[in-house]
Amino acid sequence: MAHEHKLEIFRGALKFKSNIQKIWGVLIFLSIITAIEVILGIYKPEFLMGYVLGMKALNWIFIILTIVKAYYIAWDFMHLRDELPGLRRAIVWTGVFLICYLVFILLQEGGYVHDVYSSGFITHDF
């Protein structure tokens, strides 16, 4: 059982001595991100409440941090970093493509239904 682990994260900026050290390093990184999310979620700083591309800047930050976390869980905990690029791409891009499509359709339609509700002739508040 030959197991070569790639021991670098952040594109080689941080290199660990052993696989176990890398696991703890990733845990610390994920905990820091979660802590940032929780602190932002509790205090909701005023300057992040502005809208960027139709959504609050704070929500964009949450979603981006979530994808960062997902990346490190998949790459280091699920060993995708050590798999062949072909397998990695088959797994990641299938999901990314289909999920983007699904999210686009559903959110678009949700927004449309909302517009029908709010500009229609029927009141929904009685």
């Binding site: 999920i99 699904l102 559903l106 959110l107 927004g111 909302h114």
Partner: peptide
Amino acid sequence: SGFIAAYGFSRFKFI
């Protein structure tokens, strides 16, 4: 992701 996107649908509907 289907479930979470459906949640997003309802949320956008009742935003």
